[in-house]
Design a protein around this nucleic acid. Structure first.
Lengths: 345, 345
DNA sequence: TTGTATGCGTTATCAA
DNA sequence: TTGATAACGCATACAA
């Protein structure tokens, strides 16, 4: 009772061969009903569980997906839940590893999972990552790999991502429509596509509305709140400071907000603010922060579906790129057209 | 080059036996340096990686820890990072599964990981869980299992948790010291020990300060914000409503805050509020919310250390209970003694 | 110092 | 319908 029961134990007890037991367990057609029932009964009694290890070794698949994410913040955790949902249903188990935005950690994790532990990967690259050899090794092994959310053009693989250009566009368009003239953008790390895409959307909106872009209003900083805070403080020290800021994450928006409040400026009257991710916190702050909403759960599900698809069919899907659309959640921090009197409060 | 290289490939190429290769790879003492070098060189060239699957099957250990958590909110994600940190260093890989506070999901996840995939578990029970058979099955298999954060007295296992009684005490003591007289508590689901412990701390503080507990001020509701909001609305409808609320999570505190604001009451002047978890958001809200801080990262690390300890030594640690101490982060929502004039603002 | 044989738990192939 | 055997990739007891 102590050691887990194996097929051998059943065979020995029933005085039949292991192959027969194996067949009976898997409901093969060519097995005597009497034998099968005996096997089923005994395996029930011993609470037999097939060893996934032995199966994996034999079939050369583990039915496990390695998921590598830079962190587990609100949005990522939601995406992972989406992945989990689909994977579980398809009979896969998920191994989630956080790289903590560290390139080294990302490599270690990948390598570890690569040692015949997983059938493939669903990854989102860390903000430090500039070299993709560890991911390319996955592909050399002909393992399926789907890249999601933080994708990179240096990686040829099926991808699922948000339409970040559209996200940047929506935010900027909205600010312009609200009458803001000097709109700054706090973009993220330069090596990340999401930074550049959201920046591109920003530029696209300016162009559409014939606003001349100003290089001094385009700032790069890391995703963390403190960095955004400091950058905004510097920004507001300028003689002619911007009258609106678009940050490409909500964390950054919060940093910016703290700086704005410190300077005694009011939102949306003196300065407009739009973030990105639509974290629950944005609706709770005062003023509430407008933010670009992304369908995180759906995005995770899509990534997992794409993975399964790639797993089952042999076709090359590496040029597929599923792009989900963002929406803009307009809140107090940027809305001054419909309630101009708000500045009186 | 396509299929991963095995020990056999090396043996064949070098015309030696697999056992020699195996020995050479593991730096055994009784192997000819010349042979070893040849093996090492070739394995390097073929970028040989031992199969963890085969190893696991043979040695009956996977060097993988199954981590089951109810969710991946801020605190949990931090704890998981702590677990990850220690596990990685000890040569273990972590499989994180979210139960989404669902009993069924928790069972499925446990069962899946149990099929010879992991060496043991580090778990935190879902709020729905009232029966622990699935966890007891782990113990029947003599697998190490550490319970953390959400522990249950129905489970005999090494445990790591916060001193929740102390947390409840700190919050309540603080409110009393600030002059609040009718302090309500929004406790969580009744079946969770953390609910009861924090409630116990609340009662302990009342007793210490000779305040008579009032059953009408003790309310149970789920952890989610909406529920806390509705409960608070009801609470404030009473003729003689409480002048302070202690919620056992920050999510609940936010729900309560929304209700308080809706009623037009001011914090801390009209009503005091203290939450639990010290999520970053608490310092950003207006007013900022006082909250009980728990050393989440440390707690995760401790759980993993305990797991490793249990793994390595054969001693029975099932009566061990590591208890970490909380601190109180005092913020605007409850502090009225040191700045009474704040009610004028 | 090296090789042979065996086992880990399972399935597949082939023969009976 | 069933059984013997080999194989998956590795480690190890034992023999050479």
């Amino acid at each position: 009772m102590n050691k887990p029961a194996t097929i051998k134990d059943i065979a020995k007890t029933l005085k039949i061969s292991t192959s027969t037991v194996s067949r009976a367990l898997r409901n093969a057609h060519d097995v005597n009903p009497k034998t099968r029932n005996a096997v089923l009964a005994l395996s029930e009694e011993l609470s037999y569980q097939p060893s996934r290890l032995a199966l994996s070794l034999q079939q050369k698949q583990t039915h496990t997906i390695g998921v590598i994410v830079p962190n587990l913040d609100y949005v990522m955790a939601t995406m992972v839940r989406g992945i989990d949902e689909v994977a579980l249903e398809a009979g896969y188990t998920v191994m989630v590893c956080q790289s903590n935005e560290s390139f080294g950690r990302e490599m270690v994790n990948t390598r570890r999972l690569l040692d015949s532990l997983v059938d493939g990967f669903i990854v989102s690259v860390s903000s430090e990552t500039k070299v993709f050899d560890h991911f390319k090794k996955i592909q050399q092994k002909k393992m399926p790999m789907v890249v999601f959310d933080r994708v990179s053009s240096d990686l040829v693989a099926p991808k699922v991502k948000l339409d970040n250009v559209e996200g940047g566009y929506l935010a900027t368009e909205h600010l312009i429509e609200q009458g803001y003239k000097n709109i700054a953008i706090l973009a993220g790390p330069k090596n990340l596509a999401i930074s550049n895409d959201r920046l591109e959307g920003y530029l696209k909106a300016l162009k559409k509305f014939k606003v001349k872009p100003n290089a001094e209003l385009i700032l790069h900083c890391s995703f963390n709140q403190q960095d955004a805070y400091e950058t905004t403080i510097e920004l507001l020290k300028r003689k002619k400071h911007p009258d609106a800021i678009f940050t490409i994450s909500d964390r950054m928006a919060i940093g910016a907000m703290l700086a704005i409040k410190e300077k005694g400026l009011r939102m949306p009257a003196d300065i407009g603010l739009v973030g990105f991710n639509n974290e629950p916190i944005t609706s709770l702050l005062s003023p509430s922060i407008s933010s670009v909403d992304q369908p995180a759960f759906e995005l995770g599900k899509t990534a997992a579906k794409l993975f399964i698809e790639q797993m089952h069919h042999e076709e090359d899907l590496s040029n597929i790129e599923r792009v989900l659309k963002p929406k803009l959640a307009v809140r107090e921090s940027s809305q001054r057209r419909k309630n101009k009197f708000s500045s009186a409060g």
